[in-house]
Amino acid sequence: MSEILKMQNLNKRFGRKIVLKNFSMALEEGKVYGLLGKNGEGKTTLIRMIMGVIPADSGEMFYKDKKINFNDSSYKKQIGYIPEDPFFFSWMTIKELLDFNSSFYPSWNFRKAMDYSERFSLDKKTKIKHLSRGMKLKLGLIAALASEPQLLILDDPTSGLDVPTRQDFLKDIVRELSDAGTTILFSTHLVHELERIVEHLSILHGGHLILDDDYERVKDLTRRVRMTFEDSLPEQIEMGGILSELKKGNRMEMVIYPWDVEKERKLNMFSPLRLEVEPLSLEEIFVSFVS
């Protein structure tokens, strides 16, 4: 599998605030990447840098093994981008915007754009400033997908939308995946939907990735361990991989990554009354990693 996008040692600061520090990440073709991170932690900055909207302070990026500089533009023809806040020219109508957008992409599929518009029931003559958030999302989707991109980058596009809309959106993404096998970089802090489609999980925290692994593996290896003790809780449990710890009376809860039999044995040595191990949802995994 080849790498469609590679980022090496990216650094970016805004004034005194360092947002990205020696950030590195690589995307393999055809997979769905989930990029999680708390709000304001640099996800949007990173994506903007990939899209050449703002420059990195230092570091390099490669698209299909070709170095991309801030002023390169041709690699963007293969990328579809849906940002968090709708950012089109508010005076344009839907038709005008799609028309305008199409002129940038030689691979623009007019048929597809039309099909999507019909399916979404978008009135072409409506001005963008009169569109609801949900409709703008749909428009953003068309704008990104009609160019038949090889890489689709989504920057939290569904925040602020209701669940049915989010579900619909996800369905469209899934359909796109089935049809084209597009590589997807999905950045969000609403992890619930991501859970269904993510294949590779990356968590951005403190300016770089604290987790960058196959999702199934992570899910497999992250466990919540609940222990009930007869008397007092053990003072200190010396063990690697404790992401979080919660003590309440004679009960103790820990999230551990990576979980293995060795760790289970170690915990049993503290002689708990009960030891329960359960998996976590992606949301819980994320929370544990970043807190």
């Binding site: 899209m51 909207v53 940002p83 950012f87 020219f89 940038f104 992409y105």
Partner: peptide, 20 residues
């Protein structure tokens, strides 16, 4: 002005067209 007002500068810059 339009780019600022609608935050559309990010849209324009993310299109495959050189900034100059």
């Amino acid at each position: 002005y339009a780019e600022f007002r609608d935050d559309a500068w990010a849209y324009l810059f993310s299109r495959p067209v050189k900034k100059w």
